[in-house]
Design a protein around this nucleic acid. Structure first.
Lengths: 150, 150
DNA sequence: GCTTTACCGTAAGACGTCTTACATTATGAT
DNA sequence: ATCATAATGTAAGACGTCTTACGGTAAAGC
């Protein structure tokens, strides 16, 4: 059997770091999806609800920017949320191209519970990481995100 | 038009950080895929090649652990790489359940160029980030990855 | 006013990954 | 030896996202 090598010596130090950058969100997504599964919601759906809660009347394109998804993907998410009676599309007066998005009562009811789930996941994620360290992490990731901007 | 809010005040500081943790790899993946597209390879395929290069004779299950993918997904990746003559499945003597994975000459030829592409992406990603900071980033992400271990 | 351009959402299809179920083969217990 | 259990890879199908192309609408140029 081939020896266990994590990671192989051929890969550079930077490779290892980049793999970590991808590994953490993958694990996080898995955990979070499990946590919210009882509501029948995915992480993206939950994020969408959060943004619509904060800014009622959002358009899908605006939401796409918030979620960093394509418009078509957001349309799909909203299809789901509308079908489950969490979200309502309303025509915007004066602009018949766009929908405005609003939460239904059913969504308002579950948001607090979802928040609790999120906090539980975060607590686990950041165990042993200090406030200063999370601040630095945020700053570094922010720089990197900007660096990758088109 | 709804005001631009990135991120909305409703979302906590931690939410923002978690969103960044997901945003960076997403942008990174997009950039990297564009860089390697000229070879007709995705990032995952390239990573698979790198691991097989380092440890010839890997099994698919071992590779799945390296890549943090499921076995079925790796099987699919190897199907592709084998179809493109980058990889060869060979029977393992003494265990007829498993395949061992080996690079074809075609793969060996392109690895250096792929490495150059990767370095170019990394240089952009880490612009303005010091060596100490990348070390800290690695340590923090490592902790977080461990925290999320099942 | 009319035309062109830009914007918004949808449709259709591709792709990558996951889950579940399964067939084959090894391993270990008795 | 036999049988139960575990390991390995595959098959089939679901899901989320992306890309491309398109129709409808608004805004801007002329």
């Amino acid at each position: 059997m081939a020896q266990d090598l994590h990671p192989p010596a051929y890969l550079t130090d930077t490779d290892e770091l980049v793999f970590l950058i991808e590994e953490v969100p993958r694990k996080l997504r898995r955990l979070f999806d499990a946590s919210t599964a009882r509501f029948g919601l995915t992480r993206t759906q939950w994020r969408a609800l959060a943004y619509i809660f904060r800014t009622p009347g959002l358009t899908q394109t605006e939401l796409a920017k918030c979620l960093e998804l394509e418009r078509a993907s957001v349309g799909h998410v909203i299809d789901q949320l509308e079908g489950a009676d969490y979200v309502e599309r309303r025509a915007m007066e004066g602009n018949r191209r766009v929908w405005t998005l609003h939460l239904q009562p059913k969504a308002m009811q579950i948001l607090p519970a979802l928040r609790e789930e999120a906090e539980a996941v975060y607590q686990r994620l950041f165990a042993g990481v200090s406030k200063d360290e999370t601040a630095m992490l945020k700053r570094l990731l922010g720089t990197m995100s900007t660096n990758l901007e088109p």
